[in-house]
Computed example of a mutant assay.
Amino acid sequence: MSALQALITALQLLTRIPLRLPRYSTANQAAVAGWSVLFYPVVGLLIGGLLLLVWWLLQVVANSEVSLLLAGLLLLCWVSITGALHLDGLADSADAWLGGFGDRERTLAIMKDPYAGPAGVTAIVVILLLKFAALGEMTWAFWPQLLVIPVLARLQVMLLFLTTSYVRSGGMGSAATEHLPRKTAWVWLLLIAAAVIVFIDTGWVLIIGTVVVFIVLRAIMQQRLGGTTGDTAGALIEITEAVLLCVIVLSSEF
């Protein structure tokens, strides 16, 4: 197993960037899945960097810093990079929570349904509207925050896998939680959080927002499922991104 394999695995899982994974033995697949979690924040940094590049190009073409059209195009690029993967997890989670009637097994069964119900569609619309509205208020002065928000959202998944059981046996998610190098992950997590606080203006606001979202959503997952799934991890990413975008815009008003 190599760092390159883990990085490419993380990119394949979290984005739609076309990459071919180097060959590795079946015996190493679980280890690669675990180590790939360490690269989730790196993937977030790549996403943030691509968003900044697109945002800058749009501003140059439009000769304007802020407009609803720029916000819409930037959001379109954001969704395209991830292939709406996390939005799918959000929709499945919303449908399952509404239709599961508090029953764990029913909730898990609904998450496997490939079709989106009213709750799922509503959740996607609300999240995209919040992101769109926040992006429409952001000027170029917010570029450091936009860069790190995808990082913190994916750092949430690392923290989730460190602290929460994966309730479905088998698959990449289960292997990732079982084979995640925990000591390294905790150090990496704390270093990233410290860097955000030190180097990003209002970074402490982003960290507080991230922690609050994590505590609330993890408690909900524990209460209903006793753990997490890939869908709830995707929902955590989307909700974190939307909340942090709103937080930095609202905090700038004070």
Rank of each mutant, 00 (worst) to 15 (best):
L4G: 01
V61Q: 13
W140D: 09
G136K: 02
W55S: 14
A62W: 07
L76N: 03
G72A: 08
L21D: 02
V66H: 00
T210F: 13
Q223A: 10
L76Q: 12
R23H: 15
R23K: 10
L190T: 08
K183A: 13
L85Q: 12
F132Q: 14
W97S: 07
G83L: 01
G227K: 00
P18L: 07
S80A: 12
V205C: 07
V121G: 15
V247Q: 04
L159S: 12
L190P: 02
L217S: 01
L90K: 01
L14M: 15
E253S: 15
P114K: 07
V125S: 08
T240L: 04
T26M: 10
M111G: 04
T82I: 03
G48A: 11
W56H: 12
T139A: 15
V247T: 08
G89D: 04
S165D: 15
A193M: 10
L206Y: 02
I248E: 11
M172A: 09
R104H: 02
I17M: 06
P22F: 00
A62H: 12
V61D: 05
L129Y: 14
T9F: 00
Q145K: 03
Q12K: 14
A153L: 10
M172P: 07
L53R: 00
V243N: 00
L146I: 11
S251F: 10
T107A: 09
L74Q: 11
S64H: 09
V196P: 05
C77H: 04
E137K: 10
I110L: 13
L236E: 05
Y166W: 13
A6Y: 00
W140V: 15
L11Y: 01
T202V: 07
T202H: 14
F161N: 11
G203L: 03
T228Q: 12
L21Q: 14
H86F: 09
I208L: 08
Y40H: 12
L128N: 04
L69N: 07
L51Q: 14
L68E: 11
A119G: 09
F214V: 02
A153S: 15
I200E: 05
G49A: 10
P41K: 00
G102Q: 04
L206S: 05
M1T: 01
A233C: 13
S93C: 11
S251T: 11
G203C: 09
R104G: 02
A123L: 03
R23A: 15
R154C: 13
A153H: 06
V167E: 00
L190R: 02
W35P: 00
V54Q: 08
A71W: 02
V157T: 14
W56F: 13
G173T: 13
V60G: 04
I124S: 06
A27P: 01
G120E: 10
N28G: 11
V121Q: 05
T240I: 05
A185R: 05
V54A: 09
T122N: 05
L13R: 09
L189P: 01
V42A: 11
G170M: 04
S251Y: 12
T177F: 03
A193N: 06
A96D: 09
